[in-house]
């Protein structure tokens, strides 16, 4: 299992745990046990689940298992895949920090823009590397 796959898979496990903890916070909000700002974490909950858990697990396993790109570079340009890891995780963490604070100071709005760019870059970098590996058997 390649090193970057191990990072993707382990981080995906952590996001699953984090998503469920945020989910507990959201549910506790409905019975008044957590502060009102916790309600703003609803999109974070969904994105931890869908991007942090499901998509990262797929990224890791696909990078490991998809057909080889070429004999001298079996998994394509690994730098792009590391870029995807940094982009997706950097974007998700910035999102979790900034989303409850948007509106309090202008800087948090720009942090959210940076988060959007990082997540988008992470996805595009992964697809860019993986696209040529999706092909019929030679």
């Amino acid at each position: 299992m390649p090193l970057v796959t191990r990072w993707f898979v382990r981080l995906s496990f952590l996001y699953l745990v984090a998503a469920l903890i945020v989910g507990i916070g959201l549910a506790a909000r409905h019975v008044g046990w957590t502060a009102s700002w916790v309600a703003r974490l609803s999109p974070t909950y969904f994105h931890f689940f869908m991007l942090g858990w499901v998509t990262q697990l797929i990224f890791g396993v696909a990078h490991w298992m998809f057909p080889n790109y070429a004999p001298d570079a079996p998994r394509g340009r690994e730098g792009l895949v590391w870029g995807a890891l940094v982009g997706v995780n950097g974007g998700l963490i910035l999102r979790a920090l900034a989303e409850p604070l948007v509106g309090r100071a202008a800087v948090w709005g720009w942090v959210l823009v940076l988060s959007a760019l990082l997540q988008w870059f992470g996805v595009v970098a992964f697809v860019w590397n993986t696209w040529p590996r999706v092909r019929p058997r030679r």
Partner: peptide, 24 residues
């Protein structure tokens, strides 16, 4: 699989546009 990757990029683009508007 190629269609799913294309939809991933499209979905991420839509999401990035929505999130950036939410920020600024």
């Amino acid at each position: 699989v190629k269609a799913s990757l294309a939809y991933l990029v499209l979905g991420a683009t839509f999401g990035a546009l929505i999130l950036s508007h939410k920020g600024v």
